[in-house]
Amino acid sequence: MKTVIIIPARYASSRYPGKPLVTLDQGDGTRKSLIQMTWEAAQGIMGVDGVYVATDDDRIGAASAGFGAEVLMTSDTCRNGTERVAEAAAQVKADVYVNLQGDAPLTPPWFLDALIAAMKDGADMATPVLRCDAQTYANFVEDRRAGRVGGTTAVFDGAWNALYFSKEVIPFLPPKSQDTPPVYHHVGVYAYTPSALRAYMAWEEGPLERLEGLEQLRFLENGHKVRCVEVDGRGRVFWELNNPEDVPRIEAVLRGDA
């Protein structure tokens, strides 16, 4: 089963323009761009037949080629990462396409290992979910109180098929709850078969996708199953870079790792 990782990256982010090229302190006196960190993280995934950066921006393309990445140029009409991966898939044939978004350099390799295993088990489209620890839950709540759009949460049925994804914190928890809240952080990584990508591109953007700004909701709005794959953080902090305020959070983790 040929599996490739595609890292979609765009410059014109509404919340954080130029985000893929933002550099972060690695904790050892060096700085690396977000896109390079994500590409390097992808290199550690076993059983992958190729890693590509897909972009419509010459600046991102040049920077990526500069640190050794293979670059796939796509159109500037892509509205989200899944559409960009679908365009890139026309240039690279595979059985499974993994969408590793360029704002999640802290994604542990075993998250992707679990995702690829789910695809080998017959899933048509899958995405990881991670049960929040107390600190991550507090970060979610802090972002919402400050009016920031932070990470995404997910709820699913007993068979681990997604029911909904939201940038709100779901399910609702009373103020006094258990130390480890039953809230699942959606990890913004996806895996698809070619047929799932073709179906996605044939559907129109739905109202929920448009309101939440979450590309995976297009699958749910069209009755397509999305397999949620539970992953274990193994004590490692996971957080995406969604807003400028997330930079010090991630740099603190990098300094701690160093």
Score class of each variant (00 low, 15 high):
M1Y: 02
M1E: 10
M1D: 10
I6W: 02
I7H: 05
I7W: 04
A9F: 05
Y11P: 00
P20S: 02
P20D: 02
K32E: 15
L34W: 02
E40N: 10
A42G: 10
Q43I: 01
I45N: 08
V48A: 04
D49E: 13
G50D: 05
V51H: 04
V51R: 11
V53A: 04
D56R: 04
D56A: 15
D58K: 14
D58M: 13
I60Q: 00
A63W: 01
S64C: 12
F67W: 02
G68L: 09
L72D: 03
T74A: 12
T77R: 12
T77Y: 04
T77F: 06
C78P: 05
C78V: 15
A86N: 06
E87A: 08
A89Y: 04
A89G: 15
A94R: 00
A94M: 00
D95S: 13
V96I: 15
Y97H: 02
Q101H: 10
Q101V: 15
Q101K: 09
A104L: 12
T107V: 15
P108N: 04
A114H: 08
A118V: 01
K120W: 06
A123N: 04
D124M: 12
M125C: 15
Q135S: 13
F140R: 03
V141H: 10
V141N: 09
R144W: 03
A146H: 11
A146Q: 14
G151Y: 08
F156C: 01
A159C: 05
L163G: 01
F165H: 11
F165S: 03
K167C: 12
P171H: 06
P174H: 04
P175A: 12
P175V: 09
Q178H: 08
Q178W: 05
T180C: 09
P182S: 00
Y190I: 07
A191S: 13
P194N: 10
L197Q: 06
R198T: 13
R198Y: 00
R198L: 09
Y200H: 13
W203E: 14
G206A: 11
G206Q: 04
G213M: 05
G213P: 11
L220D: 08
H224P: 00
V226P: 12
R227D: 14
C228H: 04
G235N: 09
G235F: 05
F238N: 03
N242M: 13
I250A: 09
